[in-house]
Simulated assay, not measured.
Amino acid sequence: MKQDAMPAASRDTELAASIEAMRPALLRLANLQLRNEAWAEDAVSEATLAALQGLHKFTGNSQFKTWVVGILKHKVLDQLRLHAREQQVQSSDDDDQDMDDLVFQPDGHFREMPQEWADPADQLQRRQFFEVLETCMDHLPGKLGRVFLMREWLGLDTEAICQEIGIAPTNLWVMLHRARMRLRECLQLNWFGNLAK
């Protein structure tokens, strides 16, 4: 988007609408990194406010999403510093969350089966499928989850993700492959596998 292509007020209105449209993806990214919904909400609210107040600073030299995610990164770091004493120590990224709070039974099966199974294209639109998909994404280990969301939900390019995470492009592709394979296994076990029974 060129800055001189439209009046400043129209440009700012359009960018503000873009920020609002990005909010769910920003929340998901912040929650994945902070593992605390309240902290994630605070980080996204602060990032949104900072972006809205600083729209005049966006020069258009990068993608708008990249600029907003950069602001969110700093707000996530602020939340981590603010809550450093409260944050619980986790033994590893692969630790499971409390199963009572998830949609899965302790044996790994989905708690509520879908009402019916029809054409897969139609089923993708069903709320239950997306609940399972979101839960599977929440179970991705920290770094795999971060790169997957940055690529698939925020639409960041390889260079931006590698710079943000501090990895080489080949490592990124391996991590994305692993994330997709874990999602596939999770969906097979907890969605498609249950439908075949």
Rank of each mutant, 00 (worst) to 15 (best):
Q97F: 14
D93Y: 12
L149S: 03
R81P: 00
D93E: 15
R151Y: 05
A160G: 09
D98C: 08
R81E: 10
Q90I: 15
K75T: 06
P120F: 04
C136G: 08
R151I: 13
V76L: 00
E152D: 06
D96R: 12
P114V: 15
D138T: 02
K73D: 12
Q90M: 11
H139K: 05
L77P: 00
E131A: 15
M113Y: 04
E86P: 08
K143S: 13
E159N: 05
R151P: 12
D96I: 15
A118W: 07
E131K: 03
L149F: 05
L72N: 06
P106Y: 09
L102E: 03
R111S: 03
D119A: 12
L80S: 01
Q163H: 06
F130W: 15
V76Y: 03
R81T: 07
V76Q: 02
Q163P: 01
E134C: 07
V89H: 08
R126L: 04
D138Q: 12
E159A: 11
A121C: 02
V132K: 00
V89K: 05
D138N: 08
W117T: 02
K75Q: 14
E164I: 11
H83Q: 14
I161K: 03
P141V: 09
L72T: 04
I161W: 02
I71A: 05
E164T: 14
V103T: 00
P120D: 05
Q128F: 13
C136S: 07
L156Q: 02
E164D: 14
G155L: 10
L72A: 05
R111V: 05
D93T: 07
D95P: 02
D122F: 10
L80F: 08
L72K: 03
P169I: 06
E164H: 11
W153Y: 08
E131C: 07
W117N: 00
R146A: 15
L82R: 04
W117L: 15
V132F: 02
A118H: 11
I165C: 06
P106M: 07
L154I: 09
L82F: 07
Q128N: 11
R85V: 14
W117K: 13
M150I: 02
L154G: 01
V147L: 08
V132L: 01
S92G: 09
